[in-house]
Each structure stands twice: as structure tokens, then as C-alpha cells.
């Protein structure tokens, strides 16, 4: 019998929510452990094995020189590397620092800012090492995570569509919030994957999955302005969990004073 592929999970600057999605796969965890050897997953077990690993899931962004070096070692130890979540794929909410002077933050927050060794910008893993697949979301969708793992095991392309959240709303029959209520919604420019979670509760899309495959953020922003969304609100809409995703970053910068 061939040996089971070895799985590792690594954390960088992040909240741990995405790797928790793996533990959240309760019904599938035993089957998963039957197909993969979970070799390194600190959130689940302190018993860790050395690399190399067949598949590494990487959560979090790169914010320190130490992590910038560590991700290179993770890449070196990993046959396939999949990044999970908005931090790993776009720099996360902590990429808000990219729009300000990070030294100013450390002076305000820390008693001894000189102890803090941090990078000026929070960046995606793919900005540092080659990545085999990026799974979006803040947090990721656990069904999509399973699809990525199954696809890795079966050597197939994962079914992770890159179209807009609008497609998910329309398939579910959710009435468009922008059209029927004038609600600000990032759905038309946001990558699918959540199953239109917020619109199903009458909240506009917050853009947790980052930019869709093909986006026209200026045209959406213009419509938001017509709906009465002021400049500051437009800026904040595009500058959240995926603030450093290029399409959202450029759009938020257009709304700076």
C-alpha cells in the first residue's frame, strides 16, 4: 500500500480562523485522517513531524523579516503549497498598515517600540514564494477547503469558481439588495465562495473573498456614489480584509482625499 500523503498546516500573521476551518470539518475529519497523514498541525496537536511534506496549507500574511525567511523554508519543505484565507492570499486586515507609516503605529501601541521588528507592509504569501493554489475567504469556506484537499488527493483541478458573488445570489434566488433596496454591496466585484452568506441575511457583501476574476471597481464605485454612499464609506468598503488585493487597493486609493 502506498504511503499516505503528508499534510502540514502553517500559520503566519493571522487569527487562526482559517486553519480552524480544517478542524471544523467534523464529519469528514476521520475520513481525512484516513487519507492524509497529518504531520504538522499545531492547532490540533503538539506532536509534530519534520518535513518534507506533500501538501502544506499556509495561513497568514508576511509581516516580519523572520516570517519572510520562514516561508522560504516552508516552501522548500513542501511539494505543494496552498495558501488559505485573505491574510495569506492578500495580506489580510493587517495590510491596513500598508496605507500608513507602521513605525507611527508601533510608537503609539508599544511601550518599547524599539523591541518591535516588523515590515512596513503586510503581504500575501505569493509575494514571497511560488504558490500552487490560493483559496480565498475571510474565513475560508470549509466545503471549499475539502474540495481543495480532495482535488489534491485525486489529482484533479478544484471546482473553485472565480466568478462574482452575484452568480451565487442569483442561483439561490436571493433578491438583489443593491437593486431592490439600494444597499451598498461589493457582490458584483467579489470572488464567489461564501454562497452569498451576507446577502442571504439582507446585508451587502463585504468582499471577504477578494476581487473576482474580472472586475470593474470604478463602475461599481460610481453606482455606490449614486446610491448615496459617501467617499469615506466607499474607501472603507474596498479597504477591509482584502485591502491589499491589487484591484481593491487601487480602488480604495481612488477615494482618498
Amino acid at each position: 500500500m502506498p504511503r499516505k500523503p503528508r499534510l502540514a498546516v502553517f500559520k503566519f500573521a493571522s487569527c487562526d480562523g482559517c486553519q480552524l476551518s480544517l478542524l471544523d470539518c467534523e464529519d469528514e475529519l476521520l475520513a481525512l485522517a484516513g487519507e492524509l497523514e497529518i504531520s504538522h498541525f499545531l492547532e490540533a496537536s503538539s506532536a509534530v513531524q519534520d518535513g518534507p511534506y506533500d501538501l502544506s496549507l499556509v495561513e497568514g500574511s508576511i509581516t516580519t523579516p523572520h516570517d519572510a525567511a520562514r516561508i522560504r523554508e516552508v516552501r522548500r519543505q513542501s511539494r505543494a503549497l496552498v495558501t488559505i484565507g485573505a491574510c495569506a492570499t492578500a495580506g489580510g486586515i493587517q495590510a491596513l498598515r500598508n496605507f500608513r507609516d507602521v513605525r507611527e503605529f508601533t510608537r503609539i501601541v508599544y511601550a518599547r517600540p524599539d523591541y518591535i521588528e516588523t515590515l512596513e507592509r503586510s503581504t500575501a504569501i505569493a509575494d514571497h514564494v511560488p504558490v500552487d493554489f490560493e483559496l480565498r475567504g475571510c474565513p475560508i469556506n470549509k466545503a471549499q477547503l475539502l474540495e481543495v484537499l480532495v482535488s489534491f488527493l485525486r489529482r484533479k483541478r478544484p471546482n473553485i469558481p472565480s466568478h462574482s458573488v452575484c452568480v451565487e445570489c442569483k442561483r439561490r434566488g436571493i433578491v438583489c439588495l443593491m437593486v431592490a433596496r439600494g444597499t451598498a454591496c461589493l457582490g458584483p466585484v467579489t470572488h464567489a465562495g461564501c454562497g452569498a452568506l451576507c446577502p442571504s441575511f439582507h446585508r451587502g457583501c463585504y468582499g471577504c473573498f477578494g476581487p473576482a476574476e474580472s472586475v470593474n471597481t470604478p463602475a461599481l464605485a460610481e453606482r455606490l456614489e449614486q446610491l448615496g454612499v459617501d467617499r469615506g464609506h466607499r474607501l472603507r468598503l474596498f479597504r477591509s480584509f482584502n485591502a491589499n488585493a491589487p484591484e481593491f487597493r487601487e480602488e480604495s486609493e481612488r477615494h482618498e482625499q
Binding site: H163, C166, V167, R171, G187, P188, V189, V215, N216, A219
Partner: peptide, 13 residues
């Protein structure tokens, strides 16, 4: 193309 969001809503409705 400068106005279209390419969101797909027109085709789905």
C-alpha cells in the same frame, strides 16, 4: 465595457 461589471446578473435573470 467601461460601465459593465461583468457580474453576470443580466444573463442569470
Amino acid at each position: 465595457a467601461t460601465r459593465c461589471l461583468s457580474c453576470g446578473n443580466c444573463t442569470l435573470v
